[in-house]
Structure formats: structure tokens, C-alpha cells
């Protein structure tokens, strides 16, 4: 794989409206549950991308992230991401991925949202695998309850318990550079973004995941061995982020 020139950092037109990059998220909240899942099944699931799962003793790390975007260039909406930790495309197989360095490379496999504009912008600008579904993001009794319903069918419900244990961010205490791959219509892209989290807490376990009956996405998650006990969960009550332009990566 080689890089071609990154997409030029210039405004993009979506639905006749200009979106300027980087896209700024000034206020959002997030709940994340991370699971160890079957490595081979995960590799097979994302085989279409040409990327390699970063396996840890044969297992893959899969995160379900629920985000509520409030003050955001793309408007307010809810989102659920299914992401898997992968090796950077330009690293040799088996190269150690440093998760302590502040950069974890993930592949966004699914990214349902509950609003049209962000769906088109996300697909058009970054090639994010977005589609519009019903997503509720509810906080009650110290838990974040997220329910994804697509076409009238329950896909998943995720409940993340808020922990009292603060998770200090690394480096300058709050800013983290994240990087993710996405695949859309035969094009692989990599997008870097900066997040600034405040008040993040986390714990071992802490999630209850329930899957629906027979939605394709439910079947995929079941194929990974979910639902099961979460490795760890995190909640961030206040988050801001900047999403720059993607790089197109050619195989």
C-alpha cells in the first residue's frame, strides 16, 4: 500500500452546504465498551478492507462507542461505532502496536447515526460507513443506555455503568491524537483526529450488551463472540474534537 496525496484541506460541499475542514466538535459525550473478540472472526469480518487485525494472543479488540454530538459543525446527533484495533497499513506484520504512545489505529467497521446530514457528510468526506438508524442515548441512574434500532429491528442495546475512577489522559493531560481507517465504495481512507476529553472515568468490565434477533449487524457481532463481559468501559461527559481531511490509501 502507498499513500497518494492527502485530500486537500479545502471546504467540501455536502447537500449544497459548505463544510470546512477540520470539522470541529465543541461538545459531545461518549460511552465506550471494549471487548476481546475472536481474532480470526474479526479478521474475516474486515477482510474487505485489506487491513490486518492487531491480534493479541489471537484475540482482537473490538470497541462499541456511543457518542452524542451536541455542539458540532455537522449538527447534533447520536452515533454508534463498531471499531476494531488494526495494524497500521504500512507496518510489518507482527510489529508491536504501542497503545501507550497515545495513538491507537482502529478500523471503523460500522457507524450508524441518527441524522441525514452527518450521514452524507461522513460518507462523502471521510468514507465513514454511516447510515441512518434510530439511536437513543439515555442517561439514568449512573448508566448510559444506548439502543440501536434499524428498520424497526433491534440491533443492540448497550448499558455502560459510570465509574468513579478517573482516567487521566496522557501527554498534555487532555489531548489525544487518534487515527482510524474507513472503507467506503472500494476506497480505503485514514483519518486523524484530535480529541480533548474532560472528566473521563473508566473501569474493568462495566457493560451490559444485548443483541437483537436477526439484523445483519447483530449477526456480525454474534459472529465475533458477543455479547460477553467487557474488557473495560469508559465514559466521557465532556469531549471536543477536530476531524481533519482523510488520506486516501491505495492498495
Amino acid at each position: 500500500m502507498t499513500f497518494v496525496d492527502p485530500v486537500v484541506d479545502e471546504p467540501v460541499v455536502v447537500d449544497g452546504e459548505t463544510v470546512t475542514l477540520p470539522v470541529e466538535v465543541r461538545s459531545a459525550k461518549m460511552a465506550v465498551a471494549t471487548f476481546f473478540v475472536d481474532g480470526d472472526a474479526a479478521q474475516e469480518l474486515i477482510g474487505y478492507s485489506g487491513l490486518r487485525i492487531a491480534k493479541q494472543r489471537g484475540r482482537a479488540m473490538c470497541s462499541l462507542s456511543a457518542v452524542q454530538y451536541t455542539d458540532n459543525d455537522l449538527g447534533p446527533y447520536n452515533e454508534i461505532a463498531v471499531a476494531l484495533v488494526v495494524d497500521p497499513h504500512d507496518k510489518a506484520p507482527g510489529a508491536k502496536v504501542s497503545m501507550a504512545g497515545g495513538t491507537v489505529t482502529t478500523f471503523i467497521h460500522k457507524l450508524p447515526v441518527n441524522q441525514e446530514f452527518t450521514c452524507r457528510a461522513g460518507r462523502g468526506i471521510w468514507g465513514f460507513p454511516k447510515w441512518v438508524a434510530n439511536i437513543s442515548y439515555f442517561e439514568s441512574g449512573g448508566r448510559t443506555e444506548v439502543v440501536l434500532v434499524d428498520g424497526g429491528e433491534l440491533v443492540l442495546s448497550l448499558s455502560v455503568k459510570r465509574s468513579p475512577i478517573p482516567i487521566p489522559a496522557r501527554g498534555d493531560r487532555s489531548e489525544m491524537v487518534m487515527s482510524c481507517y474507513s472503507w467506503c465504495d472500494g476506497v480505503l481512507r485514514r483519518t486523524s483526529w484530535v480529541t480533548r476529553n474532560q472528566g473521563t472515568t473508566g473501569r474493568i468490565g462495566g457493560a451490559v450488551l444485548e443483541l437483537g434477533a436477526s439484523h445483519p449487524m447483530t449477526d456480525e457481532l454474534r459472529g465475533l463472540g458477543l455479547p460477553k463481559r467487557a474488557l473495560f468501559t469508559m465514559s466521557t461527559p465532556r469531549m471536543s474534537a477536530s476531524f481533519g481531511p482523510p488520506e486516501i490509501i491505495q492498495v
Partner: peptide, 12 residues
């Protein structure tokens, strides 16, 4: 008020 409106709107 604006932030409250956005939060409610995000939740459909």
C-alpha cells in the same frame, strides 16, 4: 438554552 436544544435534538 442552545446547548439544551442541541442535546434534545441529538436524541431525536
Amino acid at each position: 438554552g442552545q446547548l439544551a436544544a442541541w442535546r434534545l435534538a441529538a436524541g431525536d
